[in-house]
Structures are given as structure tokens and as C-alpha cells.
Amino acid sequence: MKKVKIYVTLKESILDPQGSAVKGSLEKIGYGEVADVRIGKYLEVTIADTDRDVDTIVKEMCEKVLTNTVIENYRYEIEEA
């Protein structure tokens, strides 16, 4: 078994109004040093033992479904589970 931790973030060129709103709130409660907030997604995908190459199938899943590469970037870590 493998546990795959996938981090999905908006590309830098994409505005993140949600992040901006959160930044505003943080400033309001006294964290004026916050320069930027970007909100993304975190997925944990557990993969059963397989003959297929886990790295390859994770990349495929990210490109086909888990992310939209027009607007998002992703990175992942594979751990023993």
C-alpha cells in the first residue's frame, strides 16, 4: 500500500479572491505581516499494491481528473502506508 499526498495549487497567474479575502481577515485581527494567502487543495489517495508504476498512475490521475492544468499546478509525495 502507498499513501499519496497530492497538493493542488492555483497557477501564479490566476487571481485567488478567496485567498485575498482570508488575507484581509488575517490583517484585520492583527497579522499585518501577512503578505499573501493562496488557497489550494490537499488530497490523500491510498493505492493498493499493484504491478503498475505508482508514479506513472498518480501523474495520469492528476492530469486526467484531479487537477485542471489550465489553471492549477500539482505536486505529490508517495509514502509507504
Binding site: 490566476i14 487571481l15 479572491p17 478567496q18 479575502a21 485542471n68 489550465v70 489553471i71
Partner: peptide, 17 residues
């Protein structure tokens, strides 16, 4: 249709949320 690649681009969250 954009997710399917039948049209280019993507639809993002409205700017004013």
C-alpha cells in the same frame, strides 16, 4: 465542456466571491 477540452480555458470563482 471546458473540462472536457471541447472548449479552451476554464471557469474560475467569481471575482467578488
Amino acid at each position: 465542456l471546458t473540462e472536457a477540452g471541447l472548449l479552451p480555458g476554464a471557469l474560475l470563482r467569481n471575482k467578488n466571491l
